[in-house]
Design a protein around this nucleic acid. Structure first.
Lengths: 415, 415
DNA sequence: TCATTTCGTTCAGGCTCTGGACTAATTAAA
DNA sequence: TTTAATTAGTCCAGAGCCTGAACGAAATGA
């Protein structure tokens, strides 16, 4: 039982309260100090002091005085300053690299995707190319007067986040790679340490910030690419499970009598709804090695077939949708989300797949819910995970702004 | 996005730090103040002050001086005082009521189960009987010098925990019942407000405190009774999902072509592995209304058949195990737990069901894990949820001991 | 013009943690 | 036996941060 209850000192108190005020400013901007005092329960004195510290750090900006038609002295509103601090999101995927810069006001300031076949390339090489992308992004941010406070990399594999290592990324052919360190070595030092996270989790976070997730709060984001993964967001937070490997939707069993899977099971979802399985069932030749996402890739070919009404392709996608719906119904019963968001290849296949998904979901959604969860299709591009990665940086700044104003917070204890 | 970041004042700081010290005492008892200072990072001064407050509240006790053979002045150790504060756990189930008293040292001081057919009885009547049980438990606690700090009720249904109401408890025939209020009205005022929680969640918590959960940390606890539910514990905490309805294992689809279910789906786990489905498949006559748990109940009859090697019974239970294993493999892939604990009726059926469960689990456990999660069988009795309910009270005292020493903490703010 | 209202700052005060000094109690060495 | 060293716990001044009342500032309305 690891009941993480950490000591609180004055510094911790201050840090949390800075986050409280910054959060309320973000939620209600433009907002006066008086209103902040009202909303947080702090005294006006305290709010003024906290606001001053945030302003000194460049995180917020003081707008001119505003009158609401009320009487009394007009307030001077403060709001988030989007022109100083930014977060860098990076993504390594099988057939592309992506970078994006997000400012504190949640505006995307830079976005860059480069096609690259990363299958089997040496990790050092891939991270080297990513570092170039990152440097260009930092330069682009600097041109706009922005300082990049931190970076997060999205990786398609299972990670040891605490140790900062990629354990396995089967589709890249990686095994035990210290991706974070490699990246950090190539970048200028940032205020926050470089971090890494699973591509599925970050794509879900991207959806939370820039897609349908904003209205949902709790949802399961399906990020099917080569494998089928899911990012689970509960009440606005990414749910990672005990070891950070939650959401392995691809290996949920949808047919116990189905074909064996590399994972040791039988009839895993990935065997039916994974990209390769769909392509195979649709009769599209195996083209491992070519970029799947491009206009000449097999995915485009599949969509062309679907548009033409090709029977085999339609059946393959319908079958994938059924299986996906079945696996998702398990996720719905176990997590009780407000919605499901189809991302990855499924956003492109949605017109043909989602009726089957919807049908499977509409049925077995438990006695508890009156309505099945809302099924929506992601409108984010392929770099959803890069967006989410940048969002994670900004989220960190928002939840612990103190790290940007102190030099070295004391973090004692050794067990 | 509800990023619950609450203001911290001096009082909050103190309260959290009391919890920090109390937690470390619980983990390392008996332990000296000096060691506590070391472990928490507080100064000796602060530790002494916090320890004094906890001692005043009667939560900890000062043992005599201890020498470890080291040199220097011997320390005076402190440890949890199990003789002052206790938690009351209550449980309403279909065919019994239960109460139990747990002291702060996690010792069970009182345990009482009463058979009662609660199906269709008026909620007021049931809660009235439960109140009697609670009063007797409080008296038993008082006889041992214990003060009951709070009570939690386990209920078999879906709850609105914030509003303190039972939304539906299908097996009891309840709908929109303010069980907590009814109970609180009949009890003497307690330091902590009476609370309620789902039976599956609390049974899982009971397993965490008194069963195999102690070593696991993260696990899925199956609590099959009439329905099939699951309590999910992630890193020592009960995972409730966004609305508190997580873990509806019974309506995970295990056979899309299976029989329709009351929930609107088809082939839900409950249709195969629910108690009634198993009994029916085993050829045991429907005996709704009689107590299932008793020695004359249908469950005992089923077990007798299994012992005799009855083919139909064995097949029914094997089939239930397969289906349960399939549903659990979905849970394993989605939550990545360290283990699975079979509780409820499945703990009694485990000798016959668990091979099939194990087989289904051994296969589809994802690429991530090297080994399938450990499958264990609960050794707790039928009142696991009552134990968990009492544990929840103690957990609350441990995580916020300040509530037992202040009269009315100021909790401002109105949005 | 003046009372009223609301905003934000100032300043004294209180709560809680910090850190060094000090006393207490024991072991190891002289 | 005495003395030095070591460790435990308390005392007290001090610092960080929030509180609360008082106050000046800037508007509206009579």
């Amino acid at each position: 039982m690891r009941n993480e209850v950490t000591p609180v000192r004055h510094g911790t108190m201050r840090a949390r309260n800075l986050a409280v005020v910054l959060g309320e400013i973000s939620r209600r901007q433009p907002v006066s100090r008086a209103r902040l005092a009202d909303v947080t329960g702090f005294t006006k004195t305290t709010v003024s002091s906290l606001v001053a510290a945030l302003k000194d750090a460049g995180l917020i900006r003081e707008d001119g005085p505003v009158r609401d038609g009320e009487r009394g002295r007009p307030a001077t509103a403060v709001s988030i300053n989007g022109d100083r601090v930014a977060g860098l999101g990076l993504e390594v995927n099988v057939d592309y690299l992506a970078a994006c810069v997000l400012d504190l006001g949640r505006r995307i300031r830079h976005r860059h995707i480069v096609a690259a076949d990363n299958r089997g390339r040496a990790p050092e090489q891939v991270i080297g190319a990513l570092t170039d992308l990152a440097e260009r992004a930092i330069a682009a941010a600097a041109d706009q007067g922005l300082t990049v406070a931190g970076a997060v990399v999205a990786l398609p594999g299972t990670l040891d986040r605490a140790g900062g290592r990629v354990r396995t990324a089967p589709n890249l052919g990686w095994r035990d790679v210290a991706a974070g360190d490699l990246l950090a070595a190539g970048l200028p030092p940032l205020a926050l340490p470089a971090d890494q996270d699973n591509e599925a989790n970050l794509a879900a976070l991207g959806e939370l910030w820039f897609g349908d997730g904003r209205e949902l709060g709790s949802y399961v984001h399906v990020s099917g690419e080569i494998g089928v993964g899911a990012g689970i967001v509960v009440d606005g937070r990414v749910f990672r499970g005990a070891h950070g490997f939650a959401g392995e939707l691809g290996h949920v069993v949808v047919d116990p009598a189905g074909p064996p899977c590399a994972c040791g099971g039988r009839g895993c979802l990935e065997q039916v709804a994974g990209q390769e399985a769909i392509l195979r069932a649709a009769g599209i030749p195996d083209v491992t090695g070519t970029s799947t996402a491009g206009p000449d890739g097999p995915l485009a070919a599949l969509i062309a077939l679907l548009r033409d009404g090709d029977e085999a392709a339609l059946a393959a996608v319908r079958r994938a949708g059924e299986a996906l719906g079945q696996a998702l119904s398990a996720a719905v019963n176990l997590f009780d989300p407000d919605g499901i968001v189809l991302g990855g290849i499924f956003s492109a296949l949605a017109p043909w797949a989602s009726p089957a998904v919807e049908e499977a979901l509409g049925g077995g959604t438990g006695v508890v819910r009156h309505t099945p969860p809302r099924l929506t299709v992601s409108r984010l591009g392929g770099d959803a995970a890069a967006l989410g990665a940048a969002a994670l940086v900004i989220e960190r700044v928002m939840t612990d702004p103190a790290r940007l104003l102190t030099e070295a917070p004391v973090r004692p204890r050794e067990r």
